[in-house]
Structure formats: C-alpha cells, structure tokens
C-alpha cells in the first residue's frame, strides 16, 4: 500500500517552525507513523497561495488529508503522544496505558 503524505506548513524558518520540523523528524522514527506516512515540509513564503488554499490561519500546521478524516494539528508538535492521537495513530505504549 502506498504511503499517504502528511504535510507540515511553516511560514519562514522561525524558531517555532524549526522546533516543529525537529519534532516531525522524531515522529518519523516511530514505526507506527513512518510505515503509514511520508512527510513533506512546505514553506508558505515560497508558495503563499497554498495558505489560502488550505485556509491556514496559524503555523506551523500539520495537515493529514488521507486517509479520511482530515486532521490538522497546529503548533510545534512538542507533545508527540498528542500528535499521534491527533492523527488517529495509537502507539503500543498508549494502548497499554489505556
């Protein structure tokens, strides 16, 4: 099965944006995530019309379109667990905890 793409939109490489990119990289080391998704970082300064298209009001924002439902996570993604929950991915750790 082809992997879906999760896009991280940033507006310039601000400290918050850089933190978000770092956190995304860490996320990719999680097998639960990396087996399903590929990631892409887009700087809105390069493509301002994408901000309009995606109706982005705050950055950084991580947008997962497929599989449905669409998920959007705003912020520097510093809480990995919450990011995964937000993307409907449940790690073994969280399953055990619950």
């Amino acid at each position: 099965m082809a992997k879906q793409i999760v896009r991280l939109y940033v507006l310039g490489y601000t400290p918050i944006a850089q933190r978000a990119i770092e956190n995304l990289k860490l996320l990719c080391q999680q097998p639960e995530f990396s087996t399903v998704y590929d990631t892409e970082v887009i700087n809105l300064l390069d493509q301002p019309s994408l901000a309009e298209e995606e109706k982005i009001l705050a950055t950084p924002v991580l947008i997962k379109k497929l599989p449905e439902p669409m998920r959007r996570i705003i912020g520097d993604l510093s809480d990995r667990e919450r990011v995964l929950v937000g993307l409907d991915i449940f790690t073994k750790d969280s399953d055990i905890r619950e």
Binding site: L11, G12, T14, I16, R19, A20, N23, L44, L45, P48, A51, E52, K55, I56, L57, A58, T59, P60, V61, P69, M70, R71, R72, I73, I74, G75, D76, L77, S78, D79, R82, V83, G86
Partner: peptide, 21 residues
C-alpha cells in the same frame, strides 16, 4: 478565515499566516 474547529493545538504556534494571506 473561519477557524477550523477540528484542529488540535500541540505546542506553540503563531498567527503570521493571517497577515500573509
């Protein structure tokens, strides 16, 4: 500019896209 209420907030963010758009 309608806020997307399904958005989750994780960590810090800024609103610069408003000005950009």
């Amino acid at each position: 500019f309608r806020p997307n209420l399904s958005e989750t907030v994780v960590g810090e963010y800024d609103l610069s896209p408003i000005l950009l758009r």
